[in-house]
Design a protein around this nucleic acid. Structure first.
Lengths: 337, 337
DNA sequence: ACAGGGTGTGTTAACGATAACATAAACGGG
DNA sequence: CCCGTTTATGTTATCGTTAACACACCCTGT
């Protein structure tokens, strides 16, 4: 369409009859340029179709206004909420998110971290507290604020905004036990990939053992992300293999919903024959019939807190490594009793 | 952690005893550097913790390896699929996505487009074919490939990869009519914001009129994105106001699922008393009971095709404005008869 | 009237990489 | 064994903006 190369500041400066520096200042809100000059420059810029070139500004000013973020999957409402919390918190201050997804793969995460750091972000937010060794080193040496989320790692790289996946699941186990249910199963994903899912499973086992109960009713639903369909399939296997199970905790609301539908298809009444619980407080859990008992880890708040932390550091706050613990909320609905 | 400023290429060059240019070449796969030299340089780089600085490379080479993408909302499985199609297609060629979301707001889209163009992406993919006038101008003058998706605009800015929302809904209307249902309703969002939703509603009205049927059973479910809950509320209003309705088409599977649950709560049998259809072929539609009739617009393929288009242009293909039409698939399941 | 301070603008150099060109060494075919 | 070609490396200038500094001008108070 426009084969000639795009106008630069110096084109605008020439036409407006000022120096490049004045044009530069006319585009920053804080700097001192007279109102008339600024208006004239803006007008010329709009006329010639000038679009500010951040790549040059980034290099010279050593500031990119990027915040790098890694999430396991784009297609997940929980992570999307965290992203939105981040985005809303940062956008107001002109910070743009540079997003990458890891596909629940630590090797891919390492590669991604390196790729993102090349862009010289001013902070990096990662999901989870487990990384490859090189990934950790890259983060630690990046010289920018690092925020690990969705977890409470024992040896964090930098800041932490997260919660204990294990403790959250324990709350659900205890709830079931308090209602007199003892034959409780867990539907989760493959241990090698989904670290948060694995933490939840570990939390389940620990909580069951603490209650003196059998913690061997574990159904493997496959590789994360665990879909609704996989939840349904896992439930089918559970009902087949261990028909006397009284309650089941699923690694997420999505798999829990799948499990629920499997019960519906098989005429197994929920919760009178079996109680079902999920994780994550996805919208579906609140809307489906019966509504799902679940755990809300406040994903949006995780993002918002991480954003606030980054802004505080950016504003020069001399805070040491922060460790912000979010306390998930247990939501008991009709799917459990 | 590391207060000293990060090493640059010239630091690596000095330590490795070569020129900066050789270091630069050692980081590009294609260029000619001897194996020993390259290995030595890589080793030094790893030791000193050198991380390549794209900001400088971007400026000098006038290439950023960015592809800008705007979507209405991050938290939507359909757009997430398109994003994944794009991402998977582009990542292999070293292109990174620069994402922004518009919140279904054209003014916000305009601002976003400008913000993204400042980063000098090498192509831009936008959702939808409606933009503010300035937004259009920005896109047209950007001097990079522009791809509009999820729509078939009459006067596209550049390339198009999309489908007709109206025609897709007509297919569903015709399906219902063929089954002998005539009192058909539409649950959709506010006309001002969601242009695709509005297109679907318009398609509904046109199809009903073409069939000589009453096209006034329109329920407004609020501002997009229309949630499951809003779908349920809209269904409640529909059942109240027009209890003789035989079928309802919802703007998305999410609202359709909400509508379905409302029927369950009220003891209205689906599909024997009322048929329900959605749009988008979300996983929930396939898993829920009864499974939802819906329309699959192949969102992943939209992204994949857009990516392929961008790569082709990048490789120097002299293609004029492409118009790739995706034909959505009608999926009839148990929720309709 | 004049020092002192703010305001608006200009000049120069630099951010850290790479394009373009130059050149020395290694290679290979008749 | 020599010349043309390829391979490996170096030198110089530059991408488009902004930091840092400089300076002229206009206030304001005494």
């Amino acid at each position: 369409m426009t084969p000639r190369k795009p106008p630069t500041m110096s084109d605008v400066a020439r036409i407006a009859g000022v120096s490049v520096m004045t044009v530069s200042r006319a585009f920053k809100s804080d700097s001192s340029v007279s109102g008339v000059t600024r208006a004239a420059i803006r007008k010329v810029a709009e006329e010639v179709g000038y679009v500010f070139d951040s790549t040059a500004a980034n290099l010279r000013s050593q500031r990119t206004d990027f915040v790098a973020v890694t999430i396991p999957s784009i297609n997940n409402a929980n992570f999307a909420e965290t992203l939105r919390g981040l985005s809303d918190g940062l956008a107001g201050r002109g910070l743009q998110i540079l997003l990458g997804y890891t596909d629940y793969d630590m090797a891919k995460e390492e590669e991604l971290i390196e790729q993102l750091l090349r862009r010289r972000p001013e902070a990096i937010v990662v999901t989870g507290g487990k990384h490859t060794e090189r990934g950790r080193r890259l983060l630690a040496n990046a010289g920018i604020p690092v925020v690990e989320t969705w977890d409470l790692p024992e040896a964090p790289v930098g800041h932490v905004v997260g919660f204990s996946n294990a403790a959250a699941v324990r709350g659900m186990v205890d709830h079931f036990v308090a209602r007199g249910l003892t034959r409780i199963a867990f539907i989760g994903g493959d241990a090698d990939r989904d670290t948060r899912g694995t933490d939840r499973r570990a939390g389940f086992i620990a909580a069951m053992q603490a209650q003196g109960l059998d913690a061997t009713r574990l159904i493997d639903a496959g590789v994360p992300p665990i879909s609704m369909r996989e939840g349904a399939e896992a439930m089918a296997r559970l009902l087949q293999a261990l028909p006397d199970t009284e309650a089941v905790i699923c690694v997420s609301d999505l798999s829990a919903f799948g499990a629920l539908t499997e019960c519906q298809r098989r005429g197994v009444a929920v919760p009178s024959q079996i109680s079902v619980a999920g994780f994550g407080d996805y919208e579906i859990g609140a809307v489906c019939v019966p509504a799902l008992s679940t755990i809300n880890p406040f994903p949006r708040e995780i993002g918002a807190r991480a954003a606030a932390l980054i802004l505080a550091v950016r504003d020069g706050a001399q805070i040491g490594p922060a460790r912000i613990e979010i306390v998930p909320e247990l939501l008991i609905r009709q799917s459990s009793r």
